[in-house]
Amino acid sequence: MATVQYSRPGLWIGLFLASAGVIAALKLTEAINPTTAFLWFAISMLLLVPMIRSMKAAGPTGSSNSAAAIRYTKRIGISSALYVLGLGIAITLDRNRGLSTALAFAIAMLPVLPIFGMIWSMGRYLVEERDEYLRHRAAMASLAGLGLLLGVASFWGFLETFGIVPHAEGWWAVPIWAVGMGLSQGWMSYRDRARDGA
């Protein structure tokens, strides 16, 4: 059956997740400084461009790339790029200058507004997706991301309380949720392909 139709977007998604994982590992082990990590992550965001193009090329018929899914990916791609950009600017400004409370609040909005964009994109997808199975998959993936976030945050919180790990900033919540969602979607796609034509 037509499994090739969604294998290329999967390749780009896999490359993006792998690069994000490597960058996060290098940052957490302090092998690279925060600025370098930010730059590499910003560059890795470029992988989202061929991913969206390959999804459009595959087309909506017979694949998981419905029109709503393509719109969702485009919105998430733009929001993610703005998030990384806003996060980088906010952290850089915070580290290099003494900010007043009002200015710090305003700068904090730079990465937060794109996060609202991601949440809105997810909501719109659930509203716009006409294929109920794909909608079901998206809801399950979102719950899986939430589960991963709750698990990691709770575990990390206790480790932090006991002084085993350093403090983690709250903004890690969205990347962890997104990774959980991506892994879940990847697993469900793999399962679908494994049973393809069964």
Partner: peptide, 8 residues
């Protein structure tokens, strides 16, 4: 619907 839906 998608082919994945039919398969599922």
């Amino acid at each position: 619907v998608s082919r994945q839906s039919v398969n599922a």
